[in-house]
Nucleic acid binder design. Structure first.
Length: 625
RNA sequence: GCGACCGUAGCUCAGUGGAUAGAGCGUCUGCCUCCGGAGCAGAAGGUCGAAGGUUCGAGUCCUUUCGGUCGCGCCA
């Protein structure tokens, strides 16, 4: 679009200066344009001359002046000026502005899709909560963020597989407790200590008709299926779906856990020697001390009890070794993770990147997960040949230099293949006070309740489906407005208000306004048609077109660093640019049909850009409000 | 102790190493005979937590430091 066109112009100007020997080859500085804060500095500015001045051994203003001369004849530019210490200020010609509008109209919402420079095949896992309760408002952020990130990555040209990991291991103590709570309600048994209370538990219990099988296992299977169905339904209402719902238990049933762990055993990443290594880490992960902890032998170990199986994760940057298999033979949660992360690379086939989106409480889990993937990688890599003894403290972690090098190479590879993205805490405010996600009566604040409360408060007269739509739009937008890596205050009172305080209505209003205007134009006899591309010269028109054309650029940036809140910010800025334009430029003017047609084209292009960004954000584009 | 995140307007937060740091809310003042006023224009409000450093240029990068939130299980 506009930026890429300008960069292309600049590149050819630079090439011509290099051809005539004014600039040396291979300066390496990126050619970029930025939008100056001050409109007097043009539509776009380029700092290339400043960047390369030192390397080229020339005065930056002199370089800028020569670049300006080389650009003078470009029809896309109305003016080129050298300013300040060596900026190049560019003004767009109306024809370039008009051509951008025509381009958007021709390509439709596909204008917001771009080819990736290095397309990746990515598995994105998000939400993945235990099936022992509904999706909470806390998980809502992960759901909104994860689903939007997937949309953005796809728009940026990557292949994305959306995945939900079901923590349904039959050995899970939390699931067992949940099942026992349901069972005691169904069968009228004494309630387990620390059991799950709350309406959602009795709701599950009420849906179960006893079969005669009174085992906890039977109840666990039934209640988790019901809970999972509820989660699926709530997420669907929130506009979130998955390509794969992956069952943890299936890994055990298929023998994949056993197989994966044997592989780790074989490549030296796991063993059953009775000790645990712990690292004392200083700043920047420097190993200050290594502690080898002898494993205590329990008096009451039953004869025949097995040995603890350890993942030697300290070889892969983790601060302590982790238990894979308990003495009693039960696998730990992390054991399933080993098999799971091996399996995940099949979705999409030959995936080259796993993205795992976790809440702030799982931050301590990154080192462990990375170690798991590194241990898996090691089995697939060539072992280095050289071998010599290591000095302390490394000698207490690795057998020799060959092993150390192999482990560190595997770790580096793992860090390339697995990326854990942590989103930060959400604090919910009601009446200016923090509203707890878990209530004292054992109930939790469910995402679906939030959606419906917002919908009801905003549109009391609307039907249930419409209220859900409104609640979903508002909630998603609130979650997505802020960077995922900063703490978020979610003002429940503000979300429930249907007023201009609420930014989601601001952006949707712009869309509804356009729809209404286009309808009016049709009545006045203006059909979608060709327009004169040179007529959009008002500063508000230029500003609006620039903003429309920025969407692919924002998608690119968001896909690069996962900062998808930019899309929400973008939508607000686009809506603002439209409202400014609308206020200052009357669109339908029967006495000026050519101008009217050009402005209608601009309105339609704005509509396309709004719809594309709403699609990424997972919110609706209402034609009336 | 270690780690992640945060510290920018009264509040909630944006901000690509660039020129005079922005928006929303809140406070004040205006704008519908006219395409949807859920809008627009304007005013007021700032030592970007602090100190060093890198650079032609730092809210942004590096080091240190002070505050705040959260996390560091043979739970999942």
């Amino acid at each position: 679009m506009i930026r890429s066109r300008l960069v292309a112009l600049l590149r050819s100007a630079i090439a011509s200066l290099q051809a005539e020997g004014f600039l040396p080859e291979g300066l390496g500085a990126p050619v970029e344009v930025s939008e100056p804060a001050n409109p007097e500095h043009g539509d776009f500015a380029c700092n290339y001359a400043l960047m390369v001045a030192k390397a080229a051994g020339k005065n930056p203003r002199e370089i800028a002046t020569r670049l300006a001369q080389a650009l003078e004849s470009a029809p896309e530019l109305a003016a080129v000026e050298v300013a300040g210490p060596g900026f190049l200020n560019l003004r767009l010609s109306p024809s370039l502005v008009g051509a951008a509008v025509a381009d958007v109209l021709e390509r439709g919402e596909d204008f917001a899709r771009l080819p990736a420079e290095q397309p990746k095949r990515m598995n994105v896992e998000f939400v993945s909560v235990n099936p022992n309760g509904p999706i909470t408002i806390g998980s809502g952020r992960g759901a909104a963020f994860g689903s939007t990130l997937c949309n953005v990555l796809e728009a940026a040209g990557h292949t994305v597989h959306r995945e939900y990991y079901i923590n349904d291991g039959v050995n899970s103590e939390q699931m067992r407790l949940f099942a026992e709570s349901v069972r005691s309600m169904c069968l009228g048994l004494p309630f387990p200590e620390k059991g799950y209370r709350g309406d959602y538990v009795s709701e599950v219990a009420s849906k179960i008709t006893p079969s005669g099988d009174e085992s906890v296992g039977w109840f666990q299977a039934r209640s988790q299926d019901l809970m999972l169905a509820k989660q699926r339904e709530d997420l669907a209402a929130f506009g979130v779906w998955f390509d794969t719902w992956f069952s943890e238990q299936s890994l055990h049933d298929d023998g994949k856990v056993e197989a994966a762990i044997q592989a780790l055993h074989a490549n030296g990443s796991a063993d059953d020697r009775p000790h645990r290594t712990k690292l004392k880490l200083g700043k920047k992960g420097v190993i200050e001390d290594v502690e080898i902890e002898a494993q205590p032998t329990d008096e009451d170990d039953a004869e025949g009890a097995g040995k603890t199986l350890w993942l030697r994760s300290t070889k892969y940057g983790d601060d302590q070794d982790r238990v894979l298999k308990r003495k009693d033979g039960r696998y730990t949660y992390i054991a399933s993770d080993v098999a799971y992360h091996d399996d995940k690379f099949n979705r999409p086939p030959n995936a080259d990147k796993l993205l795992t989106i976790l809440g702030p409480d799982h931050h301590g889990y990154i080192g462990r997960l990375t170690a798991v993937v590194a241990a898996l990688q090691r089995g697939k890599m060539e072992a280095p040949s050289s071998s010599f003894p290591l000095p302390d403290p490394e000698s207490r972690i690795y057998a020799d230099a060959a092993e150390r090098d192999a482990c560190q190479a595997a770790l580096a590879e793992a860090k390339e293949k697995l990326e854990v993205v942590i989103f930060q805490l959400v604090r919910f405010l009601k009446d200016g006070q923090p509203a707890p996600m878990r209530k004292r009566d054992g109930n939790i604040y469910a995402l679906i309740d939030l959606i419906q409360e917002i919908g009801k408060a905003a549109a009391p007269e609307a039907d249930a489906a419409e209220q859900t739509r409104i609640g979903r739009d508002v909630a998603r937008f609130f979650y997505l407005m802020r960077s995922h890596e900063t703490h978020l205050d979610f003002d429940l009172d503000l979300a429930a208000k249907q007023s201009d305080d609420n930014p989601v209505y601001y952006v949707q209003y712009a869309h509804a306004r356009i729809c209404s205007l286009l309808e009016k134009a049709r009545e006045a006899g203006f059909e979608a048609s060709e327009f004169d591309e040179s007529l959009l010269a008002d500063r508000r028109e230029t500003a609006l077109v620039k903003k429309i054309a920025d969407l692919p650029f924002e998608i690119q940036r968001s896909a690069d660093d996962y900062g998808v809140h930019r899309i929400a910010t973008y939508a607000v800025e686009l809506a603002r640019a439209y409202h400014h334009f609308y206020d200052g430029c009357r669109v339908i003017q029967p006495e000026s049909p050519d101008l009217s047609r050009a402005r209608l084209a601009l309105c339609r292009a704005t509509q396309v850009a709004l719809r594309a960004s709403f699609g990424l954000l997972g919110i609706s584009a209402p034609e009336r409000m």
